[in-house]
Amino acid sequence: MEINLTLNGKKIKAQIRPDELLLDFVRSQGCRSVKRGCETANCGLCTVWLDEKPVLSCSTLAARADGRTVTTLEGVAAEAEAFGAYLAEEGAEQCGFCSPGLIMNVLAMERELSDPSEEEIKEYLAGNLCRCTGYMGQLRAIRNYLNRKGGETDGENR
């Protein structure tokens, strides 16, 4: 079947199998940042945005993207680099395999929540598993990143 969608800002038309998953589709389109860590919607590695909202691409049919906007880490490269630098400053990327999914969700959280508490951060990101870091370093990086951004916003508001 044919679908039309906007992938990382670019309008594309593609032939897909009816049972094709969005994860396999975006990888076939060159978005290799998107990873599969499980097949059961538990790990969060495959997180992408569908119309700006994070979804698990391992359990979303590619057909559902028809007429919609899909964003992967490749589509938010500058922001990914900005937050990613904070992760790297803590050494909290480690193997890096879960980083793209985590970063997509952190950037979504930043859009959705203002000044989230630690509990809110943990809850928002609970679906993003990581086996390397024990999450502490990621939390330090997220706090540092949000604090920096908060500081800047405050400046503009005044």
């Binding site: 940042s33 990873k35 193997c95 890096g96």
Partner: peptide, 21 residues
Amino acid sequence: SPVMKKDAMALVTGKPVYTDD
């Protein structure tokens, strides 16, 4: 000293660096 990993930025920007990529 707490220097950044040499491959860190490639990893956090989702570069295709793993086996399946």
